[in-house]
Design a protein around this nucleic acid. Sequence first.
DNA 1: TGAGCCTGTGAACGATCGTTAACTTATACG
DNA 2: CGTATAAGTTAACGATCGTTCACAGGCTCA
Lengths: 201, 201
Amino acid sequence: MVAENPRRAQIRREAARLFAERGFLGVGVDEIGRAVGISGPGLYRHFAGKDAMLADLLIGISERLLDQGRRRVDGADDPRAALESLLQGHIDFALDESALITLHDRELLNLPDKERRQVRSLQRQYVELWVGVARDVFPGLGEEARPAVHAVFGLLNSTPHSAAVGPSGADHPAGRAAMAELLHRLALGALGAAAETGPTA
Amino acid sequence: MVAENPRRAQIRREAARLFAERGFLGVGVDEIGRAVGISGPGLYRHFAGKDAMLADLLIGISERLLDQGRRRVDGADDPRAALESLLQGHIDFALDESALITLHDRELLNLPDKERRQVRSLQRQYVELWVGVARDVFPGLGEEARPAVHAVFGLLNSTPHSAAVGPSGADHPAGRAAMAELLHRLALGALGAAAETGPTA
DNA sequence: TGAGCCTGTGAACGATCGTTAACTTATACG
DNA sequence: CGTATAAGTTAACGATCGTTCACAGGCTCA
């Protein structure tokens, strides 16, 4: 870690915003350049190409989610606390970095094979982390734990769609804190209901 | 209704599949043509352009969802039955037409202004239909009914992501029926939890 | 001072893409 | 029979896009 190039960070931020707004293929390199104050080809001094920018963003977010999730589970006193912590972490992420969350499951198909496999692997590990914790908290979940966790992700990640995404990300209809609390309750309610009367298969 | 052109229906089907697989901007007209056995420019005998194909798909699905939803609510004996029916209808849609569900909230930004406004209007009416019913069933839901409904849509529409989408759509991990049942329970559990102890604001 | 790197520029390239044009074939019909 | 229409074809167009190239200014440092 050697004091990350600030220009690279700026490009990342603007590219994420533009990709989320109009899609990876809908944004040209000249436009990304203009957003950071340089011209299109100048970006190639900082990234190997447009694909590399998307790969950097998607791998970065996948690693951050997984690392944060592992740290939270390891630091929790019991399964219930682990689930609560996972939830809070993911909700914070969805509310504060909605552009990245959007890209995370919308632009995977635009990645080159190698990087796509890497992101998928990280995503899979993150899901398994949740599945393990969910099974501990809700023993009633059997074979359905994995699809239930996937559905909960869909629920949590839906926030970018439910409000126009402002620059600060703080303009959710009911306020950020209220939205976080609501998502928390929705997710727990869903998992709890999946565990009740579900087949033990 | 004058016996819809079968070639148009074929183009719609293949275009929906390709757009869902690789994105609207990631698919060329030549490829769509090849999928239906003609060549690229031949498509222009059936659609005004590529944009028109996407518009046809998105407007079509939005209208079908809204029409079906209204019919189901009108035909229900009580609010609870209306919610159950809305749920079943949307789940059937998500499971049987996962390609369209994917496009529905992924490719809106690629529509021309006029058509995008039309789809947004239909979507808004569909959401309001759900919000009304959800408020009747769960009086505890106040201001949070709308974001909660949005989140439930995210949950239900997540199914395309949780399994590789087979041609028949019937290859969900736990079987179609089990998946439908699980989604039903998850959605009801989420809404119920949102209504409990939630601010009445 | 001057050599070398870092970061930027504008011009140009090759490829791809949506669309149009000109033309052909087959079918339906008065 | 003759003709209008529907549904294809290939060729070509203009535009856009990602990327490369050749070059220039400025900073560091021996």
